[in-house]
Design a binder for these strands. Structure first.
Lengths: 340, 340
DNA sequence: GCAATGTATGAAATCGATTACATCTGATTC
DNA sequence: GAATCAGATGTAATCGATTTCATACATTGC
């Protein structure tokens, strides 16, 4: 077997023109049944597969979507990637993936070189000039940035934080701590705002430690917490990883969770329910988020191909977070010496 | 601003031919300095970006590599994806990603439609006919299959299992259990073989529970273990997830790790050192694996482009696993009633 | 029996770049 | 001053598909 067969080879083997082969493959009902048969045989005989570059060039589409995320190794993204890829594959689109922190020029090219028909953006921290410079259908997922002209999909992080705070309030906690996400991140900021507002509404004493979404940030926050003169009886962490880091460090320091401190995480990663203690957390429906983003971007891409022009303006979509109560939260211990 | 600028637009604005623009961009030193300047200005003025489909068609390369993995959401792959993407991006290649279980025909197309120059394959379970049917540079990473005609990169799983067994033997365990990977998976098979051989060499009693790489498989194995009349004092699990599931279930059933049972995992995922107890495990250098695979596939792709023909035949490469000792393993409890 | 219509097919233009080859200019050599 | 050469640039072919338009033929209606 020599080089790849081209459409020309199929055509001459079948004794028809390339136009007919093309038609037989892409819209079979426009060619005669006998011809179609001949073509299909020739395709099989030559092992012909379409050359995507040639087709994409002619049709000015790429049949591919691009996912941009700030850190591909973040376990939070895995399920989202999988869901997007599944939806995309179902409609014949391939998926490209790239770290969104690869440098301005490379990034601009990615959205501009005709290899992607649409972009799912999981990073709200990219220069808006770059993002708005792309002339492609774009969906913001999970994170967002008000300056991007693109619809947003994700949960309401303020409301989600309120779920956590209300749960702790209901358990009887009066003095609570938040280990926040990184300061420049919208998700962290909104969760913190939701935390503070909800705590105020419930008349609770609220403290915030600036943190990050990482295990290490949680561990560090735990050390600060432990050093406090009067320690809050409950902690709401900006991510599950942060929460697990917090718990881990607390336990190592001799504290018990939840009797010394209740901990609520955020995300509901796979390990959350197997951790010891199993983690109470706010679930983000990551697979749903991925599916919704994929559906939206596909709709935009196809809509654009079909000529409707206002598909890009479809509105923001909210998905529902849920409070998952497990074993890392409980009622606060009575203060030593306090009345029963 | 209208539609995207094409090379023709740049050429006429700069007052040169398209050939000159092309040369000014791809090999600047072959055009005169004044011309180069004019072209660059025209590029800036028009906002021109190359159309990748056209370039790829003409050059018969895609400047893209494809990663195929059996489950994109598996946390094990994240670091690998990130490492590959980083290396690829450095040399101007984009990365496509797909689940490798998307159906034979789609899969065949992926390696055949000219959109990828090379493939990194993380799945040893694909029909060899499909894999060998691709006429592309190919690297097997982590998993492999002897019938694929492609170099392999990964650790020696038998030797890795031996590290775990030796560690347990050194601690004084005499009766050990292995919760294996899924039966059809080479990684699971080799780890099991390594386990059995090492246990035999050390004169230990060895049992195997068929399992999987999942949390749930570990939990289930723990229930079986707990039900045993004489329980092995140590367990080697085929993955960290499995190990965490095992520990979690044991603790819930009232056992203590490591005093009732020592547990060794495999992979060293990020959570391993924050779990309670911190998990003793075999580290797979995932970032190194990704980097090595990327380097290899890039070498093959460039080599092929440069005309050398035997790059595909480069040999298998072994990376070193390491035993990471943490808190989930310890000396076995003396049997009740046994002499001190 | 003839115009009108529809169906199947082919020829050739097209998508937007790269590149082989031709041409032109000016410098170098003898 | 002619011959040679190198460097810069342009012309046109090319990559491999899709799609417009034209054509050939069969079918329908009157």
């Amino acid at each position: 077997m020599r080089a790849r067969a081209r459409i020309k080879d199929v055509a001459s083997l079948a004794g028809v023109s390339t136009a007919t082969v093309s038609r037989a493959l892409s819209s079979p009902d426009t060619v005669g049944p006998a011809t179609r048969e001949k073509v299909m045989e020739a395709v099989k005989a030559t092992g012909y597969r379409i050359n995507a570059a040639a087709r994409d060039l002619r049709q000015r589409r790429a049949r591919s979507i691009l996912i941009l995320a700030p850190d591909l190794s973040n376990t939070f993204f895995g399920k989202i990637f999988a869901a997007i890829q599944e939806e995309a594959s179902d409609v014949g689109l391939t998926v490209q993936i790239s770290d969104s922190r690869i440098g301005r020029d490379r990034l601009l090219s990615l959205g501009y070189d005709g290899r992607a028909d649409g972009i799912v953006l999981l990073d709200g921290g990219i220069d808006p000039e770059v993002v708005n410079g792309w002339k492609l259908p774009l969906v913001q997922l999970s994170e967002w940035n008000d300056e991007y002209r693109a619809p947003r999909l994700g949960i309401d992080n303020r409301a989600a934080a309120r779920l956590a705070v209300d749960h702790l309030a209901d358990l009887g906690h009066r003095d609570i701590l938040h280990v926040s996400g990184p300061g420049e991140n919208v998700l962290g900021v909104e969760r913190q705002e939701g935390f503070l507002m909800a705590a105020a509404d419930r008349g609770m004493t609220a403290t915030v430690f600036p943190g990050a979404f990482t295990l290490e940030a949680g561990a560090q926050a735990a050390r600060h917490w432990a050093a406090l003169a009067t320690r809050p009886t409950a902690v709401f962490c900006a991510s599950d990883e942060c929460a697990l880091g917090f718990i881990s460090e607390c336990v190592h320091a001799g504290f018990d969770v939840p009797s010394d401190v209740s901990v609520v995480g955020f995300d509901d990663i796979d390990f959350a329910d197997r951790f010891l203690p199993a983690l109470t957390t706010i679930r983000q429906p990551r697979a749903d988020m991925g599916r919704a983003a994929a559906a939206r971007i596909i709709q935009m891409v196809e809509g654009r191909a079909a000529g409707s022009d206002n598909v890009d303006a479809l509105p923001t979509e909210r998905l529902e977070p849920a409070l998952i109560i497990r074993s890392s939260t409980g009622t606060p211990k009575r203060k030593p010496g306090a009345p029963a």
